[in-house]
Nucleic acid binder design. Structure first.
Lengths: 109, 109
DNA sequence: GAAGTAGTTAACCAGATCTGTAACTATTAA
DNA sequence: TTAATAGTTACAGATCTGGTTAACTACTTC
């Protein structure tokens, strides 16, 4: 409704664990196992979270050359930027109309 | 975990209807009934959403002087700002470490 | 090749949440 | 004072989501 990408973003970040993952990935790329340990969640649970983050385009993954078993995840900035833009827009409207609200309210306070 | 206010914000905005309400309130204050109509949800449902938005500090409400039955809701910018700050921080880390990631990855591409 | 490690998929359970209908309060209008 | 309007609360049904355990695949190491 609001915006395809923004909607998906909020949907995905509704979960605290995924929010933590995003926070962690903001600090640098991480392998799945480490993310599971860091968030205190089981591997299967983390696996699902990561799949969701991937499908929403919030992260990318990559196999490590030295060990094909490990998967490293990295944050994609684009969706973050999109959400920032949405928030900016909401706020812009808000400020734009602020004057009008004020005068509207003056009549009763 | 991430931040009290930010966590609450995402929790609350996980719901698409509430997201729409925030968007609508960004454009100006609205009474409950209009919000229900605009989002296509029943009044009881909207009532509940608004209570949640209120308790999270995302909006404020006010009775109208001319008609004590209607309740007008307005967006509070503070939480929006808090979330923007969080996103900025995530992104800042990301960019900060970007150089390091790149050199790290150069070894295998 | 056998054992161990990284991660995914499957099955199932538990808790949370959203919704609509119906009933109720409060306020305004006739 | 009766009828209508704005909104809330209560109830019950349905869906969704996340978590765990167990089983499985793929790769590495001994």
């Amino acid at each position: 409704m609001v915006n395809e990408q923004v909607d998906r973003f909020f949907e995905v970040l509704a979960d605290p664990t995924r929010r933590q993952v995003v926070q962690l990935l903001g600090e640098g790329p991480q392998r799945a196992g480490r993310l599971a340990a860091a968030t205190g969640v089981s591997s299967p649970a983390m696996s699902r979270h990561l799949r969701i983050l991937l499908s929403a385009g919030l992260v990318t993954d990559e196999r490590v050359a030295e060990d094909a078993r490990v998967r490293v995840f990295r944050l994609r900035p684009e969706p973050v930027v999109a959400v920032q833009a949405w928030l900016d827009q909401v706020q812009a409207h808000w400020q734009e109309n602020l004057g009008a609200f004020k005068t509207h309210l003056e009549g009763k306070s």
